[in-house]
Design a protein around this nucleic acid. Sequence first.
DNA 1: AGCTAATAAATGACTGGTCAGTTATTTGAG
DNA 2: CTCAAATAACTGACCAGTCATTTATTAGCT
Lengths: 212, 212
Amino acid sequence: MDTGAPKFRRRKADRPAEIVQAALKVFAEKGFAAAKLDDIAREAGVSKGAIYLYFETKEDIFRAVVGQAIAPNIGMVKAMAAAHPGPLADLLRSVTSHVAGVVSQTPLGGVLKMVVGEARNFPEIARVWHDELVSQALGAMTAAISAAQARGEVKPGDPRVYALQLISPMLVAVLWKETFVPIGAEPFDLAAVMRQHVDTLLCGMLTEGART
Amino acid sequence: MDTGAPKFRRRKADRPAEIVQAALKVFAEKGFAAAKLDDIAREAGVSKGAIYLYFETKEDIFRAVVGQAIAPNIGMVKAMAAAHPGPLADLLRSVTSHVAGVVSQTPLGGVLKMVVGEARNFPEIARVWHDELVSQALGAMTAAISAAQARGEVKPGDPRVYALQLISPMLVAVLWKETFVPIGAEPFDLAAVMRQHVDTLLCGMLTEGART
DNA sequence: AGCTAATAAATGACTGGTCAGTTATTTGAG
DNA sequence: CTCAAATAACTGACCAGTCATTTATTAGCT
């Protein structure tokens, strides 16, 4: 009867993950400084003291939250970087739709907001986020675009800026959701935005040798 | 000898503005919760007590900071909304270059970051920012694009999404500057980004009846 | 199985420091 | 001299982090 009556809680293995998840929720809502450890504890169904069995300080929890959000996405970036040899249009369509899916089904948006908001207070966290995620992803896209340019597929122009142009609407849509939708503003449909955006932008980026 | 030796400070008229400016700097750096009133006071060259001669609470100062950042830009939005009757391409080029200039010469970026970070804690501020600035600007652009579509100048597609696509790279570039440039990341040249972006995107948006 | 240490997990009352906001006092201008 | 402007020391609340105590779990023994 292991699944019968759990009676009282007493575990260990999954506590840290539970705490991190609770912390993510509270941090994303209040920001780092305004988040109270008691809130995190309550959200995790645990006492404040218990948190200190698994984490040294509040900053530690924050680091864990950001780290946890980064980890599973590094693989994604790597896969992206494994330069798809097909035409750029196909690559971009698949990458953006994949990323849009991930972003809308994970709390990545909330973490992004936190990183932006706390970058000045936690430079190392901003650096990790940048070096391990943002820079990698941007670099991979830049490389892919650059290669396509060499192939004569893409018009002249700064490839890094092209990459920025491509991902920006997604980021803004996510921040919009985090910032203005709770206020009652009209949301954006992430997938629809990216579909229209890639179509439009590709049309402007590609040379004559391109069609879907 | 009004400009000679100010000896000791004793004014009244310009204190509030000085405090708001100092507060902007500190808030943009630390975020609302982590900003100390003593820091703001020191930055303004004033004692903490003096701040309370002009503002009721810390939140009041925050409201003033955001409000001050919004105020001068409402005119800009209005002018933009006064639908330029020429071809859309011209309108977008002039608007984006103008906005890019304003954004890079004012602390609007820092305020944007604050609004995003504190929206959950200060919904009314998010609402003001949205209703008076973001929504107006987005609405004006959407209307202009919509009109251009009716004229047969722009391909089918959601005009609100087109507007989002247009402004997103600017916003992301600004947040990039606030977030990752202090870490040592390569900055983006806002003006250059917007030039390339408008060129590319217009090429994808416009129907056959368009050229610069 | 029952009973009892021994141990691990968890608690919540407590502490020390920090900081928003107050106020008694001082300073400068007219 | 008078009054407004400004100060700096002060207060009270709040909260991160600690620790003595309680509660569940496991192991050992019969």
